[in-house]
């Protein structure tokens, strides 16, 4: 009743959720069975940065525009072009509209 049968695959979210919950429970059990000599707030929890002092959390925080810089850098060529397309000028928007209209017209006129 609650699942989907696409004809090519089956998806039952309730079963999936139960399975996921079971996995969570197992993970929790492992966590409980973990090392008993671990102490919170002691030297053990401090980050080890080659012996340097840990900086303030404000400085450690990875801000939003630093995430995925590698991916964006790798796609720099694509991004330079696609951002150049988003000019923000209304005339260009109208030109895109007229262009698409023209292409669709030609396709519909040619294809029987």
């Amino acid at each position: 009743m609650n699942g989907i049968d696409t004809g090519f695959g089956v998806w039952n979210p309730i079963a999936w959720t139960l399975l996921f919950a079971g996995a969570l429970v197992i993970a929790w059990v492992f966590r409980v069975l973990g090392r008993s000599d671990y102490k919170r707030g002691s030297e053990q929890t401090k980050a080890f940065l080659s012996g340097n002092e840990e900086p303030e959390p404000e400085k450690l925080h990875v801000r939003g525009d630093h995430l995925y810089w590698g991916l964006v850098d790798g796609l720099a060529g694509y991004y330079r072009r696609i951002r150049a397309v988003h000019t923000g000028v209304l005339s260009d928007y109208v030109a895109w509209f007229v262009g698409v209209l023209g292409v669709v017209l030609i396709i519909l006129a040619l294809v029987r």
């Binding site: 951002r83 988003h86 000019t87 923000g88 000028v89 209304l90 005339s91």
Partner: peptide, 10 residues
């Protein structure tokens, strides 16, 4: 001038 009104771009 429409080409100068483009704060929203990119």
């Amino acid at each position: 001038d429409v080409t100068k009104i483009k704060e929203l771009r990119g």
